[in-house]
């Protein structure tokens, strides 16, 4: 157990990170991610209000669907990344644990009369991830079998989205905290389900090329630099009416000086976060997340490099403990996404 964002979290269960990671890719891993912040936005104009803070298309999201977005500051820096779902009469939000104390007051501050933000501090979040996750869950909740990637189902006090943070098919289950333990035990009793901790969650998301807030993105990085332009709605790119829009527009028109890329070190040695990246003896960037990818069976990393070094295959040198380690820019994800589209 380790402290994480004010919570005591399991890094690994007895099987260990490697086994938990590989099992999630082969069958199903159950992650307790109840530290994540959950909230609801209710009232006429809720979607339009949220669009003041995010370049995502919130108003265009259909009922029963979920989407990824970033919250931006006035300089176009990323305050947080988050998931939002259209539940019909309300929006359901999931934000990062370490940022909920920033996000929720910020969202509150832009709400017009009649729109209310309800923090859901008494709800737990369980992520069941892997190719066997939905089949296992459908043995007790048959409706789930028909849910598509980024679809949302609601029933029995639960909100279940077919999404996650591993690159695999799977679900995230929001439910009342007092039901979480018994439901988690039920899930662990389903065929092929094994508990998995923060360590496997990190190696899975890294292989999937997904950003970790505080490592790969923060208030000093923009969604253009972070290669998250896909999260900016088409309509929003005509309206330019979100926080930081001027900066983002300038970056899209004129390019950025650095970009987030995948980085593949040669050999077996991992390069961790904050490792300096060089090319031709000059500092050109820094690794933001790095480690060993159990499914890739090789070290994997991501980081920011100067734009002229961002093309796939570009050779790089990583300065690990003062010694140069050969690497190259690699396409993300390292392990193919396997979503139920």
């Amino acid at each position: 157990m380790v402290p994480f964002a004010g919570y005591s979290m399991p890094v690994q269960y007895p099987a260990g990170i490697m086994a938990e990671h590989l099992h999630t890719r082969a069958a199903a891993g159950l992650f307790d991610v109840s530290h994540m912040g959950q909230a609801e936005l209710v009232g006429e104009g809720a979607a339009a209000a949220l669009e003041r803070l995010t370049p995502a298309d919130v108003q265009g999201l259909k009922p029963g669907r979920q989407r990824y977005g970033v919250l931006l500051n006035e300089q176009g820096g990323i305050i947080d990344d988050f998931m939002f779902a259209n539940m019909g009469e309300r929006l359901f939000l999931v934000v990062n644990a370490s940022r909920k104390h920033v996000d929720l007051p910020l969202i509150e501050s832009v709400l017009p009369r009649g729109v209310t933000l309800r923090p859901l501090a008494d709800r737990a979040l369980l992520a069941l991830q892997g190719p066997g996750a939905v089949a296992a869950l459908a043995t007790i909740l048959p409706d789930l079998a028909a849910l598509k990637f980024m679809g949302v189902w609601e029933g029995q006090g639960m909100v279940i989205s077919r999404s996650g943070y591993t690159g695999e098919d799977g679900v995230e289950i929001s439910l009342p905290a007092e039901q979480a333990e018994s439901f988690a035990k039920t899930l662990l009793g389903l065929p092929g389900v094994m508990p998995a901790g923060l360590g496997a969650r990190d190696s899975l998301r890294l292989e999937a090329g997904l950003c970790l807030y505080g490592n790969d993105i923060d208030e000093t990085t923009s969604p253009v630099e972070a290669n998250l332009v896909w999260s900016i709605g088409k309509r929003r790119r005509m309206e330019w009416n979100f926080a930081g829009a001027e900066t983002i527009r300038g970056q899209l028109d004129h390019g950025v000086s650095r970009l987030r890329v995948g980085i593949q070190p040669q050999g077996r040695q991992p390069a961790r976060g904050h490792t300096p990246i060089q090319a031709g003896g000059l500092d050109i960037g820094e690794i933001t997340s790095g480690g060993f990818g159990p499914s890739v069976n090789a070290p994997v990393a991501m980081g920011y490099v100067a734009r002229e070094h961002a093309a796939d295959g570009t050779p790089l040198e990583l300065l690990v403990r003062g010694k140069g380690l050969a690497a190259h820019v690699a396409p993300l994800p390292f392990h193919p996404h396997r979503y139920a589209r």
Binding site: Q12, G16, I17, M18, G199, R268, Q269, P270, F292, P294, P299, R321
Partner: peptide, 8 residues
């Protein structure tokens, strides 16, 4: 430490 993947 858990699963060791590299040693220098």
């Amino acid at each position: 430490l858990g699963d060791v993947v590299f040693v220098d």
